[in-house]
């Protein structure tokens, strides 16, 4: 009897303590989760993937009406500057027609020269088209969610482009969703080339609209208006995807204005380059030329 009373009393006092300090406990838990997330990124990625697996169908359903609303907004905006846009397009069209004839001539010439040289091309890139179903919604993250995932052939590390140019890279993949880290995100790094001078550099996002060009050998060769393209270093991106245009060169470093418009985009293309580069996990085993490899069992014992 006494024992039961003691247990009951303990239960009451525990309940009191929990009620009294539930807020403090939860605050401590929130801070604890933050620190755990910093320390154990694998666990965090799993939790994120599980949460997104749950939310992806809802986001997908939500994206359709949202797309309609976006189109309405865009229509209204377009109507407002229809005339100016028309004039600009006419001018651009005239210029592009000239370029088209140049490009045709060069394409033929290029093919002939390649045939002469027996030039071996890199793997051909194929594209996976995806609908944008989510943004990050945070002030400190620049990312997007796509409605295609592992089942559609998307893997982590692939480049994501719009018609104009590169917008980011796949960082997380679920069964039917994928997250794109955009160029402007804090943690985005990309090996690039200055198209005119072929000078290598690293494009680093810093949460502003204009990512920075870092690790250039010299600033002297870079001018405002220079085009920046992917260099293909690291292996996961094809060479020469247009990334942006240098918008300012100054004390604060070189700033690049991305070509791909992420504010308006509804569909994007994921570039499947056939090879997964250094960015994603372990590379496939290297091909061995020479005598045939010993049977696996012998190799295993030898290794031991």
């Amino acid at each position: 009897m006494a024992l039961r009373n003691a247990v009951a009393q303990a239960a009451v006092s525990v309940r009191y303590v929990v009620q009294r300090f539930s807020l403090a406990l939860l605050v401590a838990a929130a801070i604890g989760v933050m620190l755990i997330g910093k320390a154990d990124t694998v666990l965090l990625e799993r939790a994120r993937a599980a949460a997104l697996d749950l939310a992806a169908p809802l986001l997908e359903a939500l994206s359709r009406p949202v797309a309609t609303i976006n189109r309405l907004i865009a229509d209204v905006e377009d109507l407002a500057n229809l005339r100016a846009e028309n004039a600009r397009l006419r001018e651009e069209n005239a210029r592009l027609v000239t370029w088209q004839s140049v490009a045709r001539r060069m394409e033929v010439e290029n093919a002939e020269l390649r045939g002469l040289l027996n030039f071996k091309e890199g793997p051909q890139a194929t594209f996976i088209t995806a609908r944008v179903v989510g943004d990050s919604g945070s002030a400190f993250v620049r990312s997007m969610l796509l409605n295609v995932g592992r089942s559609g052939g998307v893997t982590s590390g692939q480049a994501v482009v719009t018609g104009e140019g590169l917008i980011g890279r796949i960082t997380e993949v679920g069964e039917s969703w994928a997250r794109v880290l955009l160029l402007s995100d804090l943690s985005f790094r990309l090996p690039v080339l200055v198209e005119r001078s072929r000078e290598p550099a690293i494009l680093t996002g810093d949460n502003s609209q204009l990512p920075r060009l870092a690790m250039t050998q010299s600033l002297a060769g870079i001018q405002v208006g220079d085009r920046i393209v992917t260099s293909g270093h690291g292996g996961s991106f094809p060479v020469g995807i247009p990334v942006g245009v240098v918008s300012s060169v100054g004390e604060g470093g070189v700033r690049v204005k991305p070509l791909g418009d992420v504010l308006r985009v509804e569909f994007v293309r994921v570039v499947d380059y056939g090879i997964t580069g250094l960015v994603t996990g372990p590379a496939p085993p290297p091909e061995v030329y020479g005598p045939p490899a010993p049977p696996p069992r012998a190799a295993a014992t030898k290794a031991r």
């Binding site: 929130a30 933050m34 993250v141 620049r142």
Partner: peptide, 29 residues
């Protein structure tokens, strides 16, 4: 506890290193 859960969910869904999981939970609480 509900605010805590919703905050954690929000952070998980936002993704990326720019949203440490737990910040929104802390804000809500």
């Amino acid at each position: 506890w509900l605010l805590f859960g919703l905050g954690i969910l929000f952070d998980l869904l936002q993704g990326g290193p720019g949203t440490p999981v737990g910040v929104s939970a802390l804000q809500f609480l």
